[in-house]
Design a protein around this nucleic acid. Structure first.
Length: 280
DNA sequence: CGGCAAACCTGCGAGC
DNA sequence: TGCTCGCAGGTTTGCC
C-alpha cells in the first residue's frame, strides 16, 4: 500500500511529534511480522531520544541518541498512527506502540503483517541487508534520464515490471508506476530496454513530478492508508489511470473510441492501468 | 542471471 | 444474513 509519497507523508507527520522526544514507554505486542521483530526491543528503545526520522525508499528510519536506528516498513496495510493508548489498545493489529516523554503515543498497526520492524546502528546501516542493491532515490540528485536509461539497458522485462523493481529506482509501487508511465506516454508493455534517450528522460521527469505532487497531496488513500494524524491522502482524486478502468484518461476521448477508455490488464500478477491511445 | 507465478496474511466489497 | 470469490498500495521465494 504505502509507496514513497505515503511513507514520506507519514515521516513528516511523525517527525513533527517525535524528533527531540524521549521514548518513555515501548510496548511490543505481536512480533511475528514479515520477519520477527528483534529481541529485547523494549529494553533497547526505552529511554532513548529520537534524533531524527528519515526515509530511504519505502523504509522509515528512526535515528536514536545512542546510535541505534529503528527500521520500519509498512508492507501493504501498515499504518503509523499518532494517538491512542499504550495500554489496552483498541485494535488487535497494533503490533508496536511508543509513548514519548510528552505523552505522544504512536502505534504501528498492520493487519496483514507484511510490514517489518528491524533494529540496526548508524555504523551498520549502509551495509544492512534491506538496503543492499536499492536503486537511487527518485527525488534525489542521483536520479535522471541517463541514469534510468543505463539501468534499463538490456532488460527484456516490460517497463512496468522494471519500475516496480526497487533496484532500478527506489520507492515506486503499483499506483505511481501506472501514473508515471501515463504521463511519460509509455505503454506498460513496452520492453524496458527500449526506454532510452528521450523516452527515459520523459519517464524520469514524470516519476519525479508524479511523486512530488502526490507528496504535496498527502499521498493516496484507497483503503488502509492514512497519514500519521489520521487524515486521509488526496492524490487519489488526481489519478489519471490507476483504478480507472473504462473511464477516460485526462484530456482524451479514449472512452468513446474503439479502445473503450482506460484498460486494465494483469502483469506479473498485478493490475496495470493504461490508455492504449496515449501510451506507446 | 532473468523473469514470472505463488506465497505470505487479513479484510472488504460484490455477487449469489 | 451468510457464504464464496476476487482483489488489495509489497517483497521474497522457488521454479523454469
Amino acid at each position: 500500500m504505502p509507496e514513497l509519497p505515503e511513507v514520506e507523508t507519514i515521516r513528516r507527520g511523525l517527525a513533527a511529534r517525535l524528533e527531540g522526544r524521549r521514548l518513555r514507554r515501548v510496548v511490543q505486542r505481536r512480533p511475528d511480522l514479515r520477519q520477527a521483530m528483534p529481541a529485547r526491543l523494549r529494553e533497547r528503545l526505552e529511554g532513548r531520544r529520537v534524533e531524527r526520522l528519515d526515509r530511504r525508499a519505502k523504509y522509515l528510519l528512526m535515528r536514536l541518541d545512542d546510535g541505534a536506528v529503528l527500521i520500519l516498513h509498512l508492507g501493504m496495510s501498515g499504518r503509523l498512527l499518532i494517538g491512542g493508548q499504550t495500554t489496552a489498545p483498541p485494535d488487535r493489529h497494533d503490533h508496536l506502540i511508543f509513548e514519548t516523554d510528552d505523552g505522544t503515543v504512536v502505534r504501528f498497526n498492520d493487519a496483514r503483517r507484511f510490514g517489518l520492524v528491524d533494529l540496526s546502528s548508524e555504523a551498520e546501516l549502509a551495509g544492512h541487508k534491506l538496503f543492499q542493491g536499492l536503486g537511487p532515490e527518485p527525488l534525489g540528485n542521483d536520479f535522471n534520464g541517463p541514469v534510468l536509461a543505463a539501468s534499463l539497458a538490456g532488460k527484456a522485462t516490460p517497463i512496468k515490471a522494471a519500475l516496480l523493481d526497487q533496484k532500478v529506482v527506489a520507492g515506486l509501487g503499483n499506483i505511481y508506476v501506472a501514473e508515471s508511465l501515463f504521463w511519460a506516454g509509455l505503454s506498460p508493455k513496452r520492453l524496458a530496454r527500449t526506454v532510452q534517450g528521450e523516452r527515459a528522460e520523459r519517464l524520469a521527469q514524470a516519476v519525479r513530478r508524479v511523486l512530488g505532487e502526490a507528496i504535496d497531496a498527502g499521498g493516496s488513500t484507497l483503503r488502509d492508508y492514512v497519514q500519521a494524524s489520521g487524515e486521509l491522502g488526496y492524490f487519489q482524486h488526481r489519478f489519471a489511470v490507476y483504478d480507472r478502468a473504462r473511464q477516460a484518461c485526462p484530456g482524451c476521448d479514449c472512452a468513446l473510441a474503439r479502445t473503450d477508455g482506460i484498460r486494465r490488464i494483469v502483469q506479473a500478477g498485478r493490475s496495470t492501468f493504461y490508455c492504449p491511445r496515449r501510451q506507446r
